[in-house]
Design a protein around this nucleic acid. Structure first.
Lengths: 123, 123, 123, 123
DNA sequence: GTGGTCTAGACCACT
DNA sequence: GTGGTCTAGACCACG
C-alpha cells in the first residue's frame, strides 16, 4: 500500500496518513491483521518525522481502525462495516454542512443552495 | 450594518467578519465609499481583540473589497455585486463538488448522497 | 489548581497531568468554563516540554473533559456526571481485573482472592 | 512443566513466563536444582523470540529464583514456597488496596466497590 | 527490530 | 499572547 504526502497541502500530514490508511481499509487494500509499515520505516519513506507518523497511527488506533502491539507494530483491526459506513456518511454530511453554512452566510436562499447542489449532482 | 459573531463556530472570527462585509457589499447594504466601522469601535462592539478585526480588514483590502486610508479608515471599494455573487456561488459549488466526489469515492449512491444533503439543508 | 509531576514514576508525565486535571474536575476544584493554564505556561511551571502538556490536553479533549479554542486556550467542558461516574467505576474495575488476574496467575483460588479482597475492604 | 503464553494479554510475555515459573516453584512443580528448558527450546516451543525468554530468565535469576550456569542452563534455586506464597499474596493485596482507595477517593461506597469486585471475579 | 515517551526548538494560524 | 503542527534526535521497554 502506497501512501502519498502533499507537503504544501493545508491538511496536516498526519491527517493525510490517517485518511489514506482508512481509505485502504475501506477499499480492501488493507485487510484485517495486515501489518502497517513501522513508524520508523514509513517516516523514512515519506521523509517526515517519526513522531508525525506516530500521531497518525495513534489517531487510527483511537478511532478503532488498528491495534498496536508494543514491540511488534500496528495491525489492521477487525473492521465493523456498519461503523465504517456511518463514519463515511458523517464525513460527507459534515462537508455538506460546512458548504450549506457558507452559502447561507453569503446570503443565498435554501432554494438557491439546493439548485447549486443539483447542478453538481447531475454532472 | 450589523455584524454578528459566533464564538463557538468552527469558522475563524476574522473570516466571519470578512464574509459578512462581503455579503453586505453584495446585497447593497454597503455601497462604494462607505466607511467601515473603525477597528477599535468594532472590536469593542463585538467584544473581540482589535487585532482580529484588523486581520479581517487586511483580508478585505487584499481581496480588493476595501481601500484603507491611513488615519481615516477603511472604505468600500468599487465592486460589481453580480460578479461577486457569481464568485461566491462558484465557491459553494466547488465545496459541494468535493463533498459529492468524496461520497462517490465512498461508494454512496447519488440517492444516498442527496438524502444526506437533504438532512443538512432541513436542519 | 496545582499540578504535581513525579518524573521518576513509571506513569507517563502526560498521563499524570490528565489524571490530575480529571480529578480536579471531579472534586469541583475545576468548574465548567474554567480556563486551564496555557500549554506553554504549564510546561514552563512543570519544567517539561510543551509537547508533553499538549498531549495531555489532547487526551483530555478527546475524552470530553475540555474544549480547546484556537488562540484562546482549553476550557473545562460541561461535565456529564453519569459519564464521569461510569468512567470512574470502569477505572476501578480495570484495577480489580488486573489484580484478580495476577492472583489467578499466581495460582490462587477465587476463594483465596476474595478473602484477600475482604481483608482490604474491611480495613 | 508447561508454560502458556497469551499474546493478546496486556501483560508482557516475559513477565508471563516469570510468573508461571514462580508459580511452578511455589506449587512444587519445580524443585530445587531442577533444570529449566533451554532458552532456545522454550522460545521454539512458545514461538516467541529467544531474547524474550532470555529476559524472563534474567529476571528470575536477579529475583533469586534461579541460578544460571554458563554452558549448562538455569537451575531452580533454593526457595521457601510458603514464604513465596505470602509474598505473592501480599502483592495482590497491595493491588486491591490501591484499587479500593481509588474507589473511595471517587466517592464510591464500600457496597458499590464490592459489587465492582464481584462483577470481575465472576467473569 | 518494534512502539512509547520526551525534549527543545521551529513555524504557522488565530486572538 | 494562544493553540496546531512538525522536526531531529534521545532514551526506555518489549520482542
Amino acid at each position: 500500500m502506497q501512501i502519498i504526502i502533499n507537503n504544501s497541502s493545508m491538511v496536516p500530514i498526519y491527517e493525510q496518513i490517517v485518511e489514506q490508511v482508512k481509505k485502504g481499509i475501506r477499499t480492501g487494500q488493507l485487510k484485517e491483521n495486515d501489518l502497517l509499515p513501522s513508524v520508523r520505516s514509513l517516516s523514512k519513506d515519506l521523509k517526515i518525522s517519526a513522531l508525525t507518523v506516530k500521531k497518525a497511527y495513534d489517531v487510527l488506533e483511537s478511532d478503532g481502525f488498528t491495534v498496536t502491539v508494543h514491540g511488534k507494530g500496528s495491525y489492521v483491526a477487525a473492521v465493523n462495516p456498519a461503523l465504517l459506513l456511518e463514519e463515511q456518511k458523517k464525513e460527507v454530511e459534515t462537508d455538506f454542512e460546512r458548504a450549506v453554512q457558507k452559502g447561507r452566510r453569503y446570503g443565498l436562499s435554501d432554494k438557491e443552495i439546493r439548485s447549486l447542489f443539483d447542478l453538481i449532482l447531475e454532472d
